[in-house]
Design a binder for these strands. Structure first.
Lengths: 138, 138
DNA sequence: TTACCTGCAAAACATTTGCAGTTCT
DNA sequence: AGAACTGCAAATGTTTTGCAGGTAA
């Protein structure tokens, strides 16, 4: 995995401790955290970090293509350091969000293109249901 | 088309002028309006209507299965009186939201089931791109 | 140095809630 | 009459913004 400093610099972003902390955290989790969760997880080690900076930084990252924003219908957005488009599954019981392989739904876009005559740019595919763990506890 | 009063009564909902107005409006549009838009469109003819009532009413309708909420990544939710699940296409240029036939994506769920081992309940599929009109104006 | 970044507090939104009064049934 | 609904205003939760001071290049 490339060094976070290099990744930020490659995108022309000024490198600050806050940005390093946020990007490093996001690229090491598969939990799709929201801004608040990111903030709370970094607060202990970055005591001066503010929530506003987390929001501003996520916005920079989004614009630079370093992260993608994911809205699964909750009050707040989640963020994902995997920027290739891929479907998600959301557990309606425990709230867990898991990734799905993009190539398993390749034909989607083609079908939608035929149907809408849109010039398609992206898609969002979210499944809701109970994850294996939740569905087995009655 | 069934009378709005009967539809509300069939769901065990108390029939009020506000509810009739909101449901009638929603079932006659394909524009997927949000609460604010619904409110502004009904205000002229229902001068005492309040935005809080629109929100409360939409929530009752959602719980009763009379409408579905749709989140395409905007700040506010949109509402749809077509309650069968179906994909949507959102124009990233003019913001228009159009419906897509559900049966064109039937295999989706089956594939996702295999991949996630979730017990799936629903899915949300949103395509983003330029609608035919927008893509043709440079 | 200088442009950009951070953190604070306040503002801006969308949505929800409490409550007193009104309306359905 | 009684339960449920409405409308107002205030509260809430998330995200944004303005600005003064600080930091990376």
């Amino acid at each position: 995995m490339k060094d976070t400093t290099q990744i930020l610099r490659a995108k022309g972003l000024k490198v600050t401790p806050q940005r390093i902390a946020i990007y490093t955290m996001l690229s090491h989790t598969d939990e799709h955290p929201n801004a608040e969760t990111i903030y709370r997880s970094l607060e202990p080690t970055n005591p001066t970090l503010s929530l506003a900076t987390v929001y501003k930084t996520l916005d920079f990252f989004k614009t630079s293509g370093l992260v993608q924003e994911l809205n699964v219908g909750e009050a707040s957005s989640r963020y994902d350091a995997i920027v290739t488009r891929h479907p998600h599954a959301v557990c309606t019981c425990c709230g867990k969000v898991v990734d799905l392989p993009a190539d398993a739904f390749e034909e989607l876009r083609h079908r939608a293109c035929q149907l809408t005559d849109f010039s398609l740019e992206s898609e969002q595919l979210i499944f809701y249901g109970k994850c294996p763990k939740c569905k087995n506890q009655t």
